[in-house]
């Protein structure tokens, strides 16, 4: 499969034009982060006051929501980047160029990193300005945690794109739906043992669960639990392999069944 960086940069620039000219696209990037930071920060402060540990409670929730926005922004930016081509009926135009699937994905992911940086910066600034919580207080521990979440977010996006290729635009709801499933199951704001027993095994196999478990330990002041990070990284690799396999299958089905006719 070909890989040409000029084509990757061209796709990234095309995505930049979309964000620049479509105010509604800023909702995912700015509005949701602000809403989540205010909501979970305030909940943390309220519960903390009940127990007399306001700052610690808010920090627990805010660290969770900031890290959740890494996986959310990574997934949504790539999935909506692809959706933009279906909404503007540009898919056929792209498919008849030399652009490979890998180049397209890299271009969308590249600009997705910009959107992710904006989104996570917004939620971090709000957390700092309104609740005096500094995400950077987690130190270098953030790097492996963010890396795993980034991979999981991109992998989920590939699955969502596969679903859209297979089922058509009706599946676009999964862009936000899939990631919402991770929210309760990953123990972002609570330990997994707080979940109903039947859901705990599901939570245990999710790489995100281990990322958030590791983050919670760091917020408590403990060192980064590398065993949790290792499990999360291994899980993320498995999820990425499965996602690429699924997308490849769906792309083959898309070409075989002529589903491009849904987009022209």
């Amino acid at each position: 499969m070909s890989f040409n960086t000029d084509r990757v940069l061209a796709i990234a620039r095309r995505q930049a034009y979309v964000l620049q000219r479509a105010p509604q696209r800023w909702f995912d990037v700015v509005v949701w982060p602000v809403v989540d930071a205010v909501l979970f920060g305030a909940i943390g402060v309220y519960f903390g006051r009940q127990q007399g540990a306001a700052a610690a409670s808010a920090a627990f929730l805010l660290a969770g929501i900031i890290l959740f926005h890494v996986v959310f922004q990574a997934e949504v930016s790539v999935a909506t980047g692809f959706l933009e081509e279906t909404w503007s009926r540009n898919l056929l135009n792209l498919m008849v160029t030399p652009l490979s699937e890998l180049e397209y994905g890299a271009g969308v992911a590249l600009f997705g990193l910009v959107k992710l940086a904006i989104g996570v910066t917004v939620v971090s600034i709000v957390a700092f300005a309104l609740f005096a919580f500094e995400i950077t207080s987690l130190g270098l521990s953030l790097i492996p945690l963010v890396a795993v979440l980034l991979f999981v977010g991109w992998s989920v996006a590939l699955v969502v794109i596969g679903l859209i290729l297979r089922l058509g635009q009706g599946a676009e709801i999964m862009t936000w739906g899939f990631i919402a499933l991770l929210l309760p199951l990953s123990g972002i704001f609570y330990p997994v043992n707080a979940l109903p027993g039947v859901l705990q095994p599901v939570a245990d196999v999710l790489p995100t669960t281990h990322v958030f478990a590791a983050a919670q330990e760091v917020v408590r002041g403990d060192p980064l639990p590398w065993d949790e990070v290792g499990i999360a990284a291994g899980g993320a690799v498995v999820v990425a392999i499965l996602a690429v396999w699924y997308l490849t299958r769906m792309l083959a089905t898309f070409r075989k069944r002529g589903y491009i006719s849904r987009h022209i």
Partner: peptide, 11 residues
């Protein structure tokens, strides 16, 4: 390739 039925991307 060009087709009479394909629009230009809006943005």
């Amino acid at each position: 390739f060009a087709a009479g039925y394909l629009p230009l991307p809006e943005r």
